[in-house]
Design a binder for these strands. Structure first.
Lengths: 341, 341
DNA sequence: TTGTAGGCGTTATCAC
DNA sequence: GTGATAACGCCTACAA
């Protein structure tokens, strides 16, 4: 590969300005300790401008022992949820002059990905969607870490209010008058999904409505999972009238199953997702959902990392971001005479 | 921010192994020039292993003047098209030990984003979806560049076969027996879109079928654009029976408009998108589309960059990747008696 | 076969 | 105020 092009260095600027290289560094890095004659300062600045000098961030990183780069580890960029998180992170990272190193962890190379980041001397890493416990502790311990949507007593965490998300879903259904409430979600170890489920179940139970086990479907939190789980639900002797899915992707799968079965969403069955990804507005009727602050999660993760800054090794403070109900087309009052056998 | 943790350095390994730091470097970087006694070599390797030594890539980058990092500049990760490209790029990048620096160019900071990458001494940059001409030439000239889906006589390029994509669309419609063919696409400067359109138009024209100007709709290549363009089409006295959209996103918008209007897709109107993003399978009926090698584009872009490698400043060779028709639910033979007034 | 020395481009600490 | 000088961690001639 062609080597990094010959860029102008601080010494060249120094030569042109007739000062020492150090002077250039001091003046240009606006180091407060540097009290230079206005005249010299101007000369240096001008020389730098004329030459188009831009500091080599790699060299700077080496001496500062700070790369001004952050890593972000996610399972898959194709998943709109992670794309949104990364996007949010990228926004504030570049506002603050930080770079974002991308790591996409496929099934079995989490560790290698994390190592690759660490070797690049990143100043911190954001972990989302990858089980933190599956990552080598020593590796993480040496890093500034923010974990999104996972609990940890060791690292800083940041999460949506998953319990509230589930609760909101239940309240919405209950408020609409539904009493045959179903749930579709993974049996996975994922904290968010479990909490969304728990919040939902708690409110339903508290309302006195029965929690029928045949209305509680386990399925992967993706389109295929939602699809088949909904098929199971539809095959029931007595169908539920409202279904909450652990995420939008599975809700979309469920949506598809309903449409295929001729079910009129929002009337025969109310369907609610969670995440509020854009795709939800593409289907007909549009998917009602619980909005989750994806971009904000990424953005705040970066800010948190940046502030683990000057108070090194802060005690991790878990923060929880609010969620919000977004009513679109797939939810409504139960039909007078519920369908299904 | 907490400074990069104290990692073990090559000198520490050297001390432990009782050799010079240089020896460590030579042995560990499997430099062919290094012919060391089997015994010393073993001692070094073991010391390194025991200490858990991992080279500091920043330091290495400084001396090598190669960062082993690639930049990727895209407009938005939320767009599944770019997410797929980046994902493909990331895959082969990490296979080859390269890191990927992400740059998301919002409306007006392309340049700053590119600069930030360059200052980090990236070994090359992949540009997709950002008009290369809007980027400062001097900046690009100093970099190894691969441009995706845009022509350039200055840089290496890589593209889908857009003309063929459009042609395939037309052939599909024509083969199905349609004769009232419409098109929805942006008036943008985007090369891909223009070529998809051109390929489509060429084949239609060659077939002797009339190119009606009221069937040629200009609209942004996104959901909203496709939606309103399709509405216009549906309002026509004589509706088209087949509509090709410049991309899946706008096709999805059109899909929505049709569904809202009670049009039976695949029967009343055939709708075809282009890109083959996953969302297309979530709507009902599923969107027929032209598959575009998104991930492959990203992957090959990295490989190209890597091979601009040892043959510096290669003459840019434009490559074109094949596309493929994916027939799903939204296309079919024209209805016997076409709808619409 | 191995060690010494110099340098990559910065920043930072000192004497001057 | 200003300019040497020494790191930062690594690589690579060139000596030994």
């Amino acid at each position: 590969m062609r080597i990094t092009s010959a860029r102008v260095t601080a010494s060249e600027v120094a030569r042109k300005a007739g000062v020492s290289q150090a002077a250039v560094s001091l003046v240009l890095s606006r180091n407060p300790k540097a009290r230079f004659a206005e005249e010299t300062r101007a000369r240096i600045i001008q020389a730098a401008a004329e030459l188009g000098y831009r500091p080599n961030l790699v060299a700077r990183a080496l001496v500062n022992r700070r790369s001004f780069a952050l890593g972000v580890l996610v399972p898959a960029l194709g998943d709109p949820v992670y794309a949104a998180i990364v996007s949010g992170a990228k926004r504030v990272a570049s506002e603050t002059g930080y770079a974002l190193l991308l790591a996409e962890a496929t099934a079995d190379d989490h560790v290698a990905q994390l190592r690759a980041l660490a070797d690049r001397q990143i100043d911190g890493v954001i972990i989302a969607g990858v089980i933190a416990a599956s990552l080598p502790a020593e590796e993480l311990a040496a890093l500034n870490v923010v974990i999104i949507n996972q609990p940890s007593n060791q690292f800083s965490t940041l999460a949506e209010d998953s319990i509230r998300a589930g609760a909101t879903a239940a309240e919405h259904f209950l408020g609409l008058g539904h009493s045959r409430l179903a749930f579709i979600g993974p049996a996975s170890a994922s904290h968010v999904f479990r909490h969304r489920e728990r919040g939902y179940a708690q409110v339903v139970r508290a309302s006195g409505v029965e929690l029928r086990s045949d209305y509680w479907q386990r399925a992967d939190a993706n389109v295929a999972g939602g699809f088949s789980a909904m098929r199971t639900l539809l095959a029931l002797h007595e169908r539920p009238t409202a279904v909450f899915c652990a995420n939008d992707l599975s809700a979309l799968g469920a949506h598809k199953a309903c449409t295929a079965a001729g079910v009129q969403l929002g009337h025969d069955i109310s369907l609610l997702g969670c995440d509020d990804i854009e795709i939800g507005t593409l289907v007909t009727p549009e998917l009602s959902t619980i909005h989750t602050p994806l971009g904000e999660l990424g953005a705040r993760a970066v800010r948190d990392l940046l502030s683990q800054a000057d108070i090194p090794r802060v005690v991790p403070a878990a923060k929880t971001l609010p969620v919000k109900l977004v009513i679109r087309g797939t939810t409504g009052r139960p039909a007078v005479s519920p369908p299904g056998a």
